[in-house]
Amino acid sequence: MNVRTRNRVTVSGRVGARPIVFAHGFGCDQNMWRLVAPAFAGDHRVVLFDHVGAGRSDLSAWDPDRYATLDGYAQDVLEIVDDLDLDDVVLVGHSVSAMIGVLAVVRAPARFSRLVLVSPSPRYTDAPPYRGGFTEADIDELLEALDSNYLGWSGAMGPVIMGNPDRPELAEELTNSFCRTDPEIARHFARVTFTSDNRADLGGVRIPSLVLQCRQDAIAPPEVGRWVHGALDDSRLVILEAAGHCPQLSEPGQVVSAIREFLPSPVPAAP
């Protein structure tokens, strides 16, 4: 299995500079970072990838057992870091990937120097006194919403996913293509994402971390961001003047500045 093909890894930016790895969340793919990642290309090695099952990843590599928990996705992150032989990595994870990032950092602390959690939530459902913001019924409703947007997928996207090398433009033409995948996989990922509880893992992070929290977020509300900040050993919390769950799209400038302020001055590249 070629890790770079499996996760459609794309590498850009400055050769030899400190690597910054961006991990997208549930829903879309690495395009989510299109307004943020280029800002780091001048002084970083920029690594983007699609989680298996999302975007242009190799769908044949998807395995319900491997990805039955977030650990499978964390393992993929480590394999990418390993395959590219990266050290001193800045890992930026959005939404569920903030927790995937936590798991990766806890498992291989030597590889990472900084962790950025964008709109994180360690547990989406309520477990009093903890408030994640959702009930089990809400999650079932989400799965229903996924199913309702199911039919459009199967006809149009199927042949592209199955490989249509003679008509590569098909993939570009499709509407909603950044956020489409096999409905079974989307359903599975949604369930894994929204039923995970990674609160206990936060304490295992031993590197400095940054929590980026939108002032208003229906999925990961500010109180959850504050909870994450409190549970991390050495963290900084930045409240973004943004509404929604994807500040890297709605307020990319704020996201870039907050990350830049958090990072130590880049190590100059070897001549």
Binding site: I139, L142, A145, G152, C179, A218
Partner: peptide, 24 residues
């Protein structure tokens, strides 16, 4: 609905930003 809201935040809103339109 709450489920629809999650779908909106994770699919609809990002798509609208990225490709300028969302259909159906």
């Amino acid at each position: 609905s709450v489920g629809g809201r999650i779908y909106h935040e994770t699919h609809f809103a990002p798509l609208l930003r990225m490709q300028g339109e969302v259909r159906g």
